[in-house]
Design a protein around this nucleic acid. Sequence first.
DNA 1: GTGGTCTAGACCACC
DNA 2: GTGGTCTAGACCACG
Lengths: 132, 132, 132, 132
Amino acid sequence: MICHIDANNGIPIYEQIERQVKFAVAGRTLLPGERIPSVRDLATQTAVNVNTVARAYRQLQDQGVLHSIRGTGLAVAQDAFEICEAERRKLIQARLRSALQEAFQSQMSLSDIQTLVEAECRRLSSDSDGSP
Amino acid sequence: MICHIDANNGIPIYEQIERQVKFAVAGRTLLPGERIPSVRDLATQTAVNVNTVARAYRQLQDQGVLHSIRGTGLAVAQDAFEICEAERRKLIQARLRSALQEAFQSQMSLSDIQTLVEAECRRLSSDSDGSP
Amino acid sequence: MICHIDANNGIPIYEQIERQVKFAVAGRTLLPGERIPSVRDLATQTAVNVNTVARAYRQLQDQGVLHSIRGTGLAVAQDAFEICEAERRKLIQARLRSALQEAFQSQMSLSDIQTLVEAECRRLSSDSDGSP
Amino acid sequence: MICHIDANNGIPIYEQIERQVKFAVAGRTLLPGERIPSVRDLATQTAVNVNTVARAYRQLQDQGVLHSIRGTGLAVAQDAFEICEAERRKLIQARLRSALQEAFQSQMSLSDIQTLVEAECRRLSSDSDGSP
DNA sequence: GTGGTCTAGACCACC
DNA sequence: GTGGTCTAGACCACG
């Protein structure tokens, strides 16, 4: 599993890790039962402190996404996929909704909003498609 | 001018005030030259700390949206409308962009995203249309 | 609020704090809406590291027992009493159950168990009653 | 001898094994002189690491419950019954005591506690009695 | 080797 | 003043 951390984007590092693990599970990159990298491995790999990774993993355990096998490490829980998929949808929907709501409330017209959304979508797909 | 503050949504209170003032100017609710509520009034009205309101006002002054009238308080600057309109677009675009980006990065397909956006737009326009 | 910590009883310190806060709420010592000691205060008062107290408080927030008032501190949530009361009952019941179950499974007779329980209860009530 | 291990209940696995061996001896399921499963057998049978079983056995030897028969394995010591019976009482009493103590400290009344205990006892005896 | 806990000390944003 | 995050380094129990 690969994990990209941006230490200066305002979002707490442990939350970035949390989210990326969840999204990986929701996207079938991480399968139920599979072991995840040890805290020490992920810490060195991402140049983040061990405690920070441990915190992310701990919170994922609290949410039932991971479960610990004593002395052996952490693995994705059997029912993690459902949890993560629901979570992903919820997170994305919430942010999208608040953004659109703000746009709408500030008296921007619906067609203006649509135009903006389409422009962004084009940008995103071209970023991932052709030119890097 | 009415200002709604949510103390626990993660967005700094002073920033919420800033945004709402700017959006009010951009939406012609606050007109250039018009006086705005005193720091104390807005503070008591919104149950927010005086320092926090003062900070928001100060930053609005720094950006040229407000200007002080000696001994009388603060008023909307003459060229505030242009500033705020541009600002509004920028702010909304930024938030929308980051929301869409996240959706896209989480391996949600573009068509799924579009569907979600449309659903939200319908919800918003129906909220403002018929039933309150 | 007073909090007693035993650093060497095997139970994590943050968990001891968590439990004592919950029990205080369940026992009406801490009332909904009431402010709790700041992390720094409780830390010095109990001779525990600030981070450890902060962790306990954070987990209590996650469970909806506390809520933070930005820049002001933490307070007991409005519906904390119900949560804590249920939690208390659950915790106690679980431990009692597992203890009794073990006793029973090891072929100790029910009357023996009852005797043991009564002896303990007498000990406990006399500890708190008369002689210290 | 049958041994049930729960890898994630907080109690160290070696301790679970220790307890269960002792309780088996105290309950006349394992008789003095009888051989116990080899480290490897118990390990595979319970899906536990060999080292962990070895550790449990070693500690049982240290306490005089088991003794090694050169080249043949381990057997229950001749005076193991007395040791284990006393130990069983001690272990059960300790756990029961701490559970009751916690209940009491959390401001639950003695009569409430008694009620809870009785309910649990009823449940236990009915579980073993009629319906499996 | 694994995760878990704790400490100490620093820095930040917010009020 | 408040809580929140992060780092560094230590120690522990478990396998």
